[in-house]
């Protein structure tokens, strides 16, 4: 049910989180709002800098592209006007990845949901002002037009198209990266499933929902994690 998450693993960074799914493990660290270089300074909003570090090797154009995508998503989520002329620095370290050989386009898109989710959790941990939640999900469409959410490595290796989508808690589409061979009808079905899964991840769980729809897709994993984190943060009050 949901990926494996640990809160605040690092002492040095303002906010940090690790997220481990069946494909990737990402460690995210956030520093901010901090001092910004003159050349990157924006007069009315905070500048956002995302650094993606692969597990092996130094980053190249692939990492620059991923950084630009994640930056654009985070800009829609952060309340940047609350900290003008500062910098919010997000560093994402990939620690493990899939071992099977994947096509480059599939590999690039499959890492995006883990990166976005990890960055969001680190921002929450760092106490940065956010205007909405963002949940990202990965879907793969097989040759027989079967759509699977959070596909396993084998499904990714043989898929016809791969899609990474991110939604806010209200169902607004913040990110859509789709690659492969597909048509509009397939995409619409993919978008529907993704929206349901993302909205369900932060939805208020009602008793009937839990009983009726016990599938992994409908589980509010993000809400549970954040609620647990909030409870732990005030636990000291109960002990004193």
């Amino acid at each position: 049910m949901g990926p494996d998450i640990s809160h605040h693993p690092l002492a040095g960074a303002d906010g940090s989180a690790t997220i481990s799914s069946n494909l990737y493990s990402v460690l995210a660290a956030v520093n901010g709002p901090i001092e910004v270089q003159r050349r990157d300074e924006l007069p009315e909003e905070a500048a956002i800098e995302v650094n993606i570090r692969p597990a092996s090797g130094v980053g190249g154009p692939r990492e620059r592209w991923l950084e630009s995508v994640v930056t654009a998503v985070l800009r829609s989520v952060l309340l940047v006007h609350m900290h003008p002329r500062t910098l919010i620095q997000v560093t994402l370290q990939l620690t493990t990845g899939p071992t099977l050989k994947l096509k480059n386009a599939t590999r690039d898109i499959s890492v995006l949901p883990s990166l976005v989710n990890a960055a969001f959790l680190a921002l929450v941990d760092g106490g940065l002002p956010l205007q909405s939640t963002v949940t990202a999900v990965l879907l793969a469409v097989s040759g027989e037009e079967v759509i699977s959410i959070d596909p396993a490595e084998k499904e990714l290796a043989g898929c016809k198209s791969v899609h990474a989508l991110a939604y806010t808690q209200h169902g607004d589409l913040l990110l859509n990266e789709s690659a492969g061979n597909f048509n509009l009808e397939v995409w619409e079905e993919v978008a529907d499933r993704a929206e349901k899964a993302c909205v369900a991840a932060v939805a208020l769980a009602s008793e009937d929902d839990e009983m009726a729809n016990g599938t992994a897709e409908a589980a509010p994993w993000l809400r549970r994690e954040l609620e647990e984190k909030a409870r732990d943060a005030v636990a000291w009050r109960d002990h004193t």
Binding site: A13, S16, N51, R53, G57, T91, Q93
Partner: peptide, 11 residues
């Protein structure tokens, strides 16, 4: 051996 320090450990 590649050792690049990132802002993760220290701003």
């Amino acid at each position: 051996i590649a050792c690049e320090l990132s802002p993760m450990a220290s701003a």
